[in-house]
Design a protein around this nucleic acid. Structure first.
Lengths: 129, 129
DNA sequence: TCAGTCAGTGATAAATTTATCACTATGGCG
DNA sequence: CGCCATAGTGATAAATTTATCACTGACTGA
């Protein structure tokens, strides 16, 4: 794994949370696992846009951080399943809340980024006094 | 601002949320602003480790996304204040929750990353069946 | 004029995260 | 053996985010 050069601030809860779950795919992975999708192959199919390589990287970090657990069944063909640990389960409400917020905010972001001339309500509030 | 090459998925709430608040400093900035620290200079002092340049970048994005509003007082010396918009305020509970979670998780992360030989409870659960 | 405060910008480098592509390894099965 | 499916790794490039450093600009007051 990548060896950090800038140290983590263990006193900033937000920083810690970001370190553990703040990446492009981790939320999605946890969400999928919580819904019963447990095998790498299925995860890769279920999560739109992720590649096997990246999935492994992210899952590996989640496992290392104690958010996901891994079970290897020595069947043929090989079967591997990931599951949320107790710690991992404490994240679910946060994920759900963030997802909900994001979906609500989505149209605004789209309007802002795509030069929405229609939606102006939430646009930059800038005032000169 | 940086021009994305990989497009955003507007259907993934988590992705949207990450786009808007998922960065090293944004949470901290919002937290500070919500506590009444509103001027750039004060924010730069209050947030440990951030530089003026980066602060401006991040604040600018938050403003563009409609999370922060900006008021310019044409006094001397110039005074600028940022404040949470209505949308921004909807983020506060999430920030609080993430911060709390992070602080609770902090010791585990530290133990894991710093080769903790003492704390083993939450370590990788890997089983072979 | 010169230093001092405050807010901000431009160019660029460094750090970090994600993505690509080509591989290895195990075992079943025709 | 050759080919399938599964899970995984190594090397490296590309994308993205953060950091550095030197600036501009407006204004005050000595």
């Amino acid at each position: 794994m990548y060896q950090r050069k800038i140290p983590i601030d263990y006193n900033c809860g937000l920083g810690i949370a970001m370190e553990v779950i703040g990446s492009k795919w981790k939320f999605c992975i946890l969400d999928a696992v919580s819904k019963g999708i447990q095998r790498p192959k299925d995860l890769a199919q279920a999560i739109n846009g992720i590649t096997r390589r990246v999935l492994h990287q992210q899952v590996g970090e989640l496992e290392m951080h104690g958010i996901l657990g891994k079970t290897i069944y020595t069947e043929v063909p090989l079967r591997v399943e990931y599951h949320l640990t107790a710690t991992g389960k404490t994240l679910l409400p946060l994920i759900e809340a963030l997802n909900t917020w994001g979906l609500e905010f989505s149209p605004h972001l789209r309007a802002i980024l795509e030069g929405g001339s229609s939606v102006k309500a939430l646009q930059t509030e800038e005032a000169i006094m």
